[in-house]
Design a protein around this nucleic acid. Structure first.
Length: 307
DNA sequence: CTAATTTGACCGTC
DNA sequence: GACGGTCAAATTAG
C-alpha cells in the first residue's frame, strides 16, 4: 500500500513503452491480419492494464480498503430460517461499495473460462430482465471472492451486461493454457514491456481437467520486481469473434437462451493490477508468486487464443 | 449421490 | 417501505 508509489511509476512507464512497441509492431505486421489482430489484443490488454493499475492505485490511496476479503466467511454459517428471528449479520458484508475491482462490460458470450456458481437472481426495477448473481465456484475451497453479476440488456437482448466484482484468487488448473508457442510470444512481450513480468519457461503449465474455471496461483519462483498484475482470463476465441461493445474482447457462442441468465460459462475481462506486488499479494493474502503467475498465465492465454 | 440451480425469505441501504 | 444483494432449503441435473 504505502510502498506502491515507486514500483507503480515504474510499471506505468514500462507499460507505456510496451504499448508503444506493440504499436510499432502492429505497423510492421500490417500484411498479416492475424498478427495484426493479435497485436491489437495485446494493446488492448495493456491499455486495460494501465487503466486498472491506475484505478487500483487510486483506490489503495483513497482508503485502506478492506476489499471483499474482509467479509470472507462472515456470511457463511447460520441457517437462514433458524437465524430469522435471531440476528445473523450476514448482510453486514454487503457494503461492498466500490471497493475492490469492479469491471463492467457488455458481451454476448457469457463464457469467460471461469467456473461460476449462481447464487441468486433478482428482478430489477426498470429492467425487463432479471439480474443473476454468481460467485466463484471456489469461494469456499479456495476462498476466492470473485463475483459476477449478469443482466440481459433491455435494448439488445442478445447482449449481457456483466459486472465483475473482485478478482479471482482461486487457482484452477483447467484454464491455464499452455505453453510453448505462447512462450515465444510472451518473450516478445517481455522484451517490449521490459520489466512487466518474467516469463518462466514452464510458467503456466496446466494440468488436469478441462472444465471451466481458471487461473491463478502458481508455484513458480517469485519475481519480486514484477509489478504488474494481469488478471485476465483470456477469452477463448475461436474463429471469428464478434466485436463487443465496450471493453470486452469476446467470444462467439450462444448465450443462454430465454430471458434469464443462466449459469454456464462466462466471459471474461482483462484486468490488471498495478502496484507493489508484495503489498498487493499481502492485500489479498497471497504471496507474490501468485500475481506473477497470474500475469504470465493471462498473457499466455491472450496470446495463445489466436495462435 | 453429489453438485448446481432455483427461488422465496431475509437483511442492510437508500 | 422499496430495492438490491445474499442466503439456504428445495429441487433438478449429471
Amino acid at each position: 500500500m504505502a510502498a506502491a508509489a515507486a514500483p507503480f511509476a515504474q510499471v506505468m512507464e514500462d507499460m507505456a513503452k510496451g504499448q508503444e512497441y506493440a504499436t510499432q509492431l502492429q505497423a510492421l505486421l500490417r500484411d498479416s491480419p492475424e498478427a495484426g489482430r493479435l497485436v491489437d489484443r495485446i494493446l488492448h490488454a495493456m491499455s486495460r492494464t494501465i487503466d486498472t493499475a491506475k484505478a487500483a492505485a487510486a483506490e489503495e490511496e483513497a482508503s485502506e480498503v478492506q476489499s471483499d476479503v474482509t467479509c470472507a466467511g462472515t456470511a457463511a454459517g447460520g441457517k437462514r430460517k433458524a437465524a430469522a428471528g435471531g440476528g445473523d449479520k450476514r448482510a453486514a458484508c454487503r457494503k461492498r461499495g466500490q471497493q475492490s475491482s469492479v469491471v463492467t462490460k457488455n458481451t454476448k458470450d457469457l463464457d469467460d473460462g471461469h467456473a461460476w456458481r449462481k447464487y441468486g437472481q433478482k428482478e430489477i426495477q426498470n429492467s425487463k430482465h432479471p439480474k443473476a448473481y454468481f460467485r466463484c465456484t471456489h469461494k469456499h475451497d479456495q476462498q476466492c471472492l470473485a463475483q459476477r453479476q449478469v443482466q440481459r440488456r433491455d435494448d439488445d437482448p442478445d447482449v449481457y451486461t456483466v459486472t465483475y466484482i473482485g478478482v479471482h484468487t482461486c487457482r484452477d488448473p483447467a484454464t491455464a493454457v499452455g505453453p510453448l508457442v505462447v512462450h515465444a510470444a510472451a518473450q516478445e512481450l517481455h522484451h517490449a514491456g521490459s520489466r512487466l513480468i518474467s516469463f518462466a519457461a514452464n510458467a503456466s503449465v496446466a494440468t488436469t481437467s478441462t472444465t471451466t474455471t481458471g487461473n491463478t496461483t502458481g508455484q513458480q519462483a517469485g519475481h519480486k520486481d514484477a509489478a504488474a498484475l494481469l488478471l485476465a482470463r483470456p477469452l477463448k476465441l475461436e474463429g471469428g469473434g464478434e466485436q463487443e461493445e465496450v471493453l470486452s474482447s469476446l467470444t462467439p457462442a450462444p448465450g443462454p437462451d430465454q430471458g434469464d441468465v443462466t449459469s454456464g460459462l462466462q466471459l471474461q475481462q482483462q484486468h490488471c493490477y498495478g502496484g507493489d506486488l508484495a503489498d498487493m499479494a499481502a492485500h489479498f493474502g497471497y504471496d507474490d508468486t501468485f500475481w506473477t503467475t497470474l500475469c504470465s498465465d493471462s498473457i499466455t492465454d491472450i496470446l495463445s487464443s489466436d495462435l
